[in-house]
Amino acid sequence: MHGPGSGPLEFLGSRLARRRMSKDSEKQKQARDQARLIADVAMRKDRQAFVSLFGYFAPRIKSLLMRGGAPAEMAEDLAQEAMISVWRKASCFDPARASPAAWIFTIARNLRIDVARRSQREKVYAVLETVEPDGPEQPDAIITASQRESKVREALNILPPEQLEVVRLAFTEGMSQSEIAEALKLPLGTVKSRTRLAMTRLRQKLEEVR
């Protein structure tokens, strides 16, 4: 007879849990390493560090932009442009505020729209970087960006598929709520409420570490 906690299923379960755990700590380590590379670019104009970042992110940014509808060649040019921004803005990267992937996502996001609107978008989005932290933002300091990223990953992993779908279409495909509603043949209100439920889940996950 197996005692509680020692059966084959429990054993398998704990192994899976451990594997998931090690995958998570792997991801956290990767985020820390990337943050260090960005710091090296910022402080020493370290090209080797930049090449590593480029090798990881440029092909992914290209995919992201292609999923958003950009033709391959354009996506590639923009991916390069995004990485050149990483080189130039490296000193603006604040590892306490964002994980490297989240920061680089925001750079790619601002390139996703047509050229004419880009400069104003940058100005509108600069608010996040320019306003000094006040009260409610402070508690953030106690969780690191890589912890936050791992909680966000956890939350995404447990989202019901219909919520994950609307989140993906917005963040990866760059579709607006009404475009999503049209694509999925859903009322706009449903797209909104699914998004809100997903964000609530995310907030709950982050509460665990705040």
Binding site: L64, P100, A101, I104, E149
Partner: peptide, 13 residues
């Protein structure tokens, strides 16, 4: 918004 931007980071990765 910073938390939500992290979704973009995770999905990009």
């Amino acid at each position: 918004v910073r938390d939500f931007e992290c979704i973009g980071g995770v999905l990009l990765g």
